[in-house]
Every structure is written in C-alpha cells, then in structure tokens.
Amino acid sequence: MSDTLEVLVLDDEPIVGKRLKPALAKVGCAVEVFDSPAAALARIAEKEFDVVVTDIRMDEIDGMQVLEAVNRKSLRTKVIMITGYAMMSLAREAMEKGAFDFIAKPFTPEDLREVIGRAAQALRSPAEPPSALAG
C-alpha cells in the first residue's frame, strides 16, 4: 500500500471542498473534491477511494445514498459522514449502514485529519480496532 491516501470529499457547500483539499494534502492525501453528489457518484463508480468524506443533507442525492454506493463498490473504503444536521438517530443510521465515522459540523481541519488518520490505520490493519490516533 502506498503512503498517499486517496480521498474523495463531497459537500454541496463548495467552501468545504476548497478548504479541505489543501488541509488534507498537507498530510499526504490525494484529494478529489466534488460539490455535486451526482458527479461524485460517477467518480466513485470509476475509482476505488481509500476514504470518502461526504455531507449527508444534500439536494437530489443524500449522503446515505453515497455511503451505500461506496459500500457496493468497495467495502474497504472508509466513509466519513459530515453533517450540520447531526442527531442521534441519523448518526446511528449512518453507523449501521457502515460509516467509519460521523462528524458534526462545524469541525476543524485537524478534527478531520485525526479521523482520516484513524481510517488510514484501520486500512493498514483491518483486524485491529482503530483506537490510537495517528495523524
């Protein structure tokens, strides 16, 4: 496995992608940014990403559908849900559907890097539960 982590960021708020791309590139991620769920789904169908970061509440297609699409494509890919509409039921639904993590907006780039670090660790050693933080 190479050191670069292939990450897709999807949020219909363009600023999220704009800011996260450099923030994640810093820690060695190759980031592709989308603000349209349809375009992101098309890309996901083409390519197997290591990590997908997706917003949940979006027009047309919502994050849960993206999560399901990613799972259909590859169970290896870690999906991190980010949402402003964080609620217990939504969080549990996401986890049940196989999300790697669920983050409530607003979050800092460091918060996400921490989670992606854990995802990377989980990718390297799938048997071990992700506990320690890496970044």
Binding site: A91, A99, A104
Partner: peptide, 13 residues
Amino acid sequence: QHKRFKPMTFSRK
C-alpha cells in the same frame, strides 16, 4: 454489538 451503537467522533464529543 450493532454497528449503530459504535462510538464515533460525534458521540464521543
């Protein structure tokens, strides 16, 4: 054991 009860960044926070 169900995945929905797994801790996550949101709930830990």
